[in-house]
């Protein structure tokens, strides 16, 4: 992690402290989605927010080392396929597409493991939304419009990092 990239050392230190808690909060929102306000989508946005925070503080190389764009795009597709898979399992085990086919005992109400397939669907959505919002942010931040000498404008990828 080079010292030249990103914002000042104060921001970096504070970010390093905070980022774990923000990620944890995002995971909490996803996992407790069926019990408390929140769910897969807001939780996924918060998880993506941690990576955005890292990008702002340290420059974009640090988050991309932890989660490169190919992996993010695959996580994105995996989330969608898991969600669809849960819906198809409903068709297979139950009688309808997207049916909540797991047993829902009254004794489990308001516990973490309750509500049948809803927590699993929330996890899949969290994965999908987290990965895709991170991808959107990266793609918006790696391209820029440059003016060519002949007056035309061209969209291009920024050179990675400040190499000196």
């Amino acid at each position: 992690m080079s010292e030249k990239e990103g914002l000042s050392v104060i921001v970096k230190v504070v970010t390093r402290w905070i980022v774990g808690f923000v990620l944890l909060f995002g995971l909490y929102i996803v996992i407790f989605g069926h019990l408390t306000p929140g769910g897969g989508f807001p939780g996924g946005v918060i998880i993506a927010g941690t990576f955005v925070l890292l990008t702002l503080a340290f420059g974009k190389d640090t988050p991309l080392r932890k989660l490169n764009s190919t992996l993010a795009s695959e996580l994105d597709s995996t989330g969608a396929i898991i969600f669809l898979g849960i819906a198809l399992l409903g068709l297979y085990f139950g009688s309808f597409f997207a049916e909540n086919f797991l047993t829902k005992l009254p004794s489990s109400y308001f516990k973490l493991f309750s509500a049948g397939v809803i927590p699993w669907a929330n996890l899949a959505i969290g994965l999908k939304v987290g990965a895709s919002i991170f991808m959107v942010f990266i793609i918006l931040s790696v391209t820029r419009v440059v003016g060519l000498p002949n007056g035309e404008k061209k969209m291009t990828r920024k050179p990675t990092g400040r190499r000196k």
Partner: peptide
């Protein structure tokens, strides 16, 4: 098994599966 939901689910699933499995 009813095919009606598959009319939507099949292209949706394939749409996400194709970029994963056919990179090589």
């Amino acid at each position: 098994m009813n095919v009606l939901p598959l009319m939507v689910a099949l292209p949706l699933g394939m749409g996400f599966l194709i970029p994963m499995v056919s990179r090589k």
